[in-house]
Design a protein around this nucleic acid. Structure first.
Lengths: 137, 137
DNA sequence: GCTTCAGTTGCAACCATGATGCAAATATAA
DNA sequence: TTATATTTGCATCATGGTTGCAACTGAAGC
């Protein structure tokens, strides 16, 4: 599916910022932060434009946000695009990258009486395969 | 265990800010934000002092931080104090409260080859029992 | 109780993320 | 090409996190 079609199917205008963001995220093999996306983007956009583009794309479930910490937010292509269920995320303490563990569905936790869950976020922090290998060299 | 003993056992000086924070968190039945703690506290402390107190108490595993979003951070008494294992957290979309689900241990997710986990954060968002009851009245 | 000093506090200043109002610019449909 | 609903850029603000530094203070020793 082309980026144009993704935007069209959500009745979103195709602006260079939106197209750029989606392109960068689709190409990347990992979740990216606002700055990481900006670096990989041709155009130079205002922070607010970026912020609002992310928000719009998120609301339309084209991308999803992973909050690692209050000072580290990353974005990845959403489930509805890759057709995967709710999945866990992995954050590497060494290289600070975030990966969607698309084959690791989040467990359905049994809540106390009267509690109802809407969504569950699972963030696993540790060392990724890449950094583990470098560490043992 | 008294607050004084908690600080002493970690070789931390007993300052009114630290004692106050721990007291407020122990008393509360839920995780609290910086502002919620400040409101319940007698003294008037600088933001930086608060921030550094939280950091110190967190590093010594007396309290732990729950990041709901980039703009919402809450603190709760840590496992080492209540002697509970790694647990899930519940965030109510209605009343914005965070509760430690101390009887809900986090699942040990099986990671891809080469990946090693250090800690897993599980944040379940939904409606708490309290808000659910009010909604059905 | 007084002295000493490592540790803590308050202040100023800075960065990142999130958010809104408003005028100018633009995508798209007519 | 024009009209209009959206989007963009700019200014501005809020919150959380962070550091440097001088002033202050808890706790130990005298």
């Amino acid at each position: 599916m082309r980026v144009v079609d993704i935007l069209n199917s959500h009745n979103l205008k195709r602006t260079s910022c939106r197209e750029g963001i989606i392109n960068v995220i689709i190409t990347a093999n990992q979740a990216l932060s606002e700055n990481e996306i900006r670096e990989r983007l041709a155009g130079n956009y205002d922070r607010t434009t970026f912020y609002r583009s992310f928000k719009t794309l998120e609301e339309h479930r084209i991308i999803h946000k992973i909050v690692v910490d209050t000072q580290m937010v990353k974005y990845a292509l959403d489930n509805t695009v890759t057709h995967k269920d709710e999945h866990a995320h992995f954050f590497c303490n060494e290289c600070n990258t975030v990966k969607c563990l698309e084959n690791i569905p989040v467990e359905k936790y049994k809540l106390p009486d009267g509690y109802f869950d809407v969504e569950t976020e699972v963030l696993i922090k540790g060392i990724c395969a890449n950094c583990k290998n470098q560490g043992s060299n």
